[in-house]
Design a protein around this nucleic acid. Structure first.
Lengths: 344, 344
DNA sequence: CAGAGAAATACAACCGATTGTATTTTTTTG
DNA sequence: CAAAAAAATACAATCGGTTGTATTTCTCTG
């Protein structure tokens, strides 16, 4: 049983006394093959337990029906939504996903890009690692006309397609909302400012302050890695400030930092939102569990994943041309929850 | 620039005036090729910008250096940890991952299995969908001696390797802990009992009750899909019970249900752990955010992912034989937090 | 230095599907 | 019913490494 040879189109051809060409075309429902013949081929294929050999196929056709995905890390709530969306869309379009993580290391990102290149992925989906400043390592793809789409963490100076949300505007909305609640000393905790997502959020924050005639205070802007520890440390910094210097609101560039900062402050007896209002970013599951629930920005990860894949596949199928589209901006929305509502 | 032909081993061979065979073997550091020749080949390869064609290679060698992964869904905290662990191990071993989700549907699982089979994955890693009762659709892999490893959600009657934690024992520990806190009416909210993970947890719960001379009450065992809604509904059911009939502890088979049940009960004024103690399962991020923090079982997803991959690869590399190993049980541990501590 | 043995390299078939073109078969038409 | 057009099928080269075996080259020994 287990040692049977693989069944090939030649076996089918022999069985039916026709040529392998006809079988090959018949299996793909090529219009020049007689419908009856196609039916017979399909039947025989099933009968013999034929399975198409993707290598032989790819070797000749130079298409792999595979998309490469490179992300900084897989284990985040946001990224798993993105992947779920990608897989869903890819599956629908008949593509497979090869997934690798850069672990936030540029070197790994390069390696992965090389592997994907060798694996001849039909397209590449990338969210950049922390330190990535040059996207030189994707040049090989560009020069071979293999479509590349960046999402979320996109290259600052890339002339390729990017899928993002309007981080600037979202941060502006958050800040504006906090201001509307009467906050005047709003702290911003951001991430690596080399990354578009964080620099844009900072920009939105600043602009909102300016538009509402609030002073921008350098000391109220912190930068960190936005981890749990980062959140807790931020709380300590706040607690060390003189009471009058303390912020009356904190806007973190992600929910994790916001939540762990809240928790630490609450433990220290600070009232939220009474003394300090809070807002985060991402709409992570934890934002709906922390008390009070965290005001945040809904980041449509699943949709982003889908959009990235359909963007690539429609290009591959000769529909839209990716190089015409520079940026796709997905809708995000402010979700106001109790952590920031001072006025009822 | 962009229209160059692909560089093949023949180009390298021509350039160096040697045969393609030598180039092929040279590139793989085959011992029968002179070291100097190898060096020259490597140099020329780099010079010409050669990239190996994996199809041509796989077509002949019948190895793909690719592992297939089929999971119920990608967007859960647990699963993303598993994937991160898998990717990490696979990368180290020189394997790639093709990932697909079954969306909890048996049909999708079958389709995915078929695709993976056609893609000639060297091995398959599977966590089963909700409704999967027969693993017939993996038979093709078995018969072709393609290693399959089940993890987390394993087939009840599979004779293949499984990687799990001791769900029975973990649930036993949880229940025992609750009992040690003085709880006498412990509710259990479980998942689909066709799945090993949930039936084992129920079994552990029952045994712990029995061992401590506590009666088993049918009405205190609920089954659901363990979503947020499920948690909230459970809370409503509890609230509808006469006060004297209410449980004094709830042990949910995952953290999500536990947390959302807690939240709803708290909103109704019930004191936790005072009136009702809580315990969950998985050690999800939300378990450390909810107040009081949730007692749970640490489920080592990352390790499980790594173990699954190294299990497969060491088999593929001819090390350990997978068919000798029936089950690998990873260590899990009870994490006691405030949600269940009645006695100080 | 001849001859045996080892080391290095080359030959040639092969993996299995794809595809442009040629050929055969069927259908249509005047 | 023959000729032309359309439909269906077949031929044969090709994609680019891999591998068992044959051949050549080199090294060593008596």
């Amino acid at each position: 049983m287990s040692e049977e040879k693989e069944v090939t189109i030649y076996d089918i051809a022999k069985q039916l006394n026709i040529s392998a060409t006809t079988v090959s075309r018949g299996l793909k429902d090529h219009p020049t093959i007689n419908i009856k013949t196609r039916k017979k081929i399909a039947e025989t294929a099933k009968l013999l337990g034929y399975r198409s050999n993707t290598f032989a196929s790819s070797l000749r056709s130079k298409r792999t029906q595979t998309l490469g995905v490179i992300v900084p890390r897989l284990n985040s709530s946001f990224m798993s939504s993105v992947l779920a969306g990608m897989e869903n869309a890819a599956n629908k379009e008949g593509y497979n996903l090869i997934i690798a993580q850069s672990q936030e290391q540029v070197e790994k990102e390069k390696e992965n890009a090389q592997i994907m290149f060798n694996k001849r992925v039909d397209g590449l989906l990338v969210s950049l690692a922390y330190g990535t400043e040059s996207i030189q390592h994707f040049e090989v793809f560009f020069s071979k006309k293999i479509p590349v789409i960046f999402f979320d963490r996109v290259a600052a100076h890339a002339d390729s397609t990017s899928i993002i949300i309007d981080n600037y505007s979202a941060a502006y909305q958050v800040t504006k909302h906090l201001i509307s609640q009467g906050c005047k000393r709003i702290m911003h905790v951001g991430g690596n400012m080399l990354l578009n997502v964080y620099s844009e959020r900072l920009r939105g924050y600043k602009q909102a302050l300016a538009d509402h005639k609030l002073p921008f205070t350098e000391k109220l802007v912190l930068t960190g890695n936005l981890t749990e520890e980062c959140g807790a440390e931020t709380a300590q910094k706040i607690l060390k400030m003189k009471v009058k210097d303390r912020p009356d609101a904190v806007f973190c560039a992600n929910d994790t930092a916001a939540v762990y900062c809240m928790i630490a402050l609450k433990a220290a007896g600070i009232k939220i939102p009474g003394e300090i209002a809070f807002a985060g970013f991402n709409n992570d599951p934890i934002s709906r569990v922390v008390e009070p629930n965290l005001t945040t920005v809904n980041y449509p990860g699943y949709n982003m994943g889908q959009a990235a894949v359909t963007g690539i596949t429609s290009h591959l199928n000769g529909g839209t041309n990716i190089s015409d589209t520079n940026t796709i901006v997905l809708r995000s929305e402010l979700i106001v929850r109790d952590s920031s509502v001072k006025k009822k």
